[in-house]
Design a binder for these strands. Structure first.
Lengths: 70, 70
DNA sequence: TCCTTAAGTAAAGCGTGCTTGACTTGTAAA
DNA sequence: TTTACAAGTCAAGCACGCTTTACTTAAGGA
């Protein structure tokens, strides 16, 4: 799923490690989500929204990768 | 994670099967999420919000089950 | 040059999200 | 009573979220 994680993280000048620590997950997890390898769990999505001070639907775009063929 | 699925589904007079079909998942999945056995994936959370015409954070409460000890 | 930090890849392993199928219980209609 | 539907439990199995470890590449400072 497409997201604005990388953008928002860099706006704040945070490293992936810093964000991972703030979220309580590994750096690998941050990388994988940023690069769209997989979607975060719902609890993690809530923590991301909290960390970035926005709503989940502002952070993630469900149509971003979801094969809308027409 | 605590949620208002059951409440909102019954307001609309939908069976679990009807909701499951609308979401494109099995009835088991609806039951398990309603009863808090596990959290939906992020894509499924977005579909739930769409089906119920609200936002994810209106449907789910991240503090609902999250062991805040103090 | 060497060292450090940030970002990335890859792979093995564990817990959980979701599926299918079978079974139970309560309610209501035939 | 029998049939049918809604809601629930349980269990086996597959796919994905997340962890850990190890390695690579590029940029900056000593």
């Amino acid at each position: 799923m497409k997201n604005s994680l990388n953008e928002r993280r860099q706006e704040r000048g945070w490293s992936q490690q810093h964000l991972a620590d703030a979220l309580g997950v590994s750096r690998q997890t941050v990388i994988s989500i940023e690069r769209g390898r997989f979607d975060p769990s719902l609890p993690l999505a809530f923590r991301l929204a909290e960390v970035f001070g926005c709503r989940i639907d502002e952070l993630f775009d469900p149509r971003g990768d979801g094969a809308q063929s027409s």
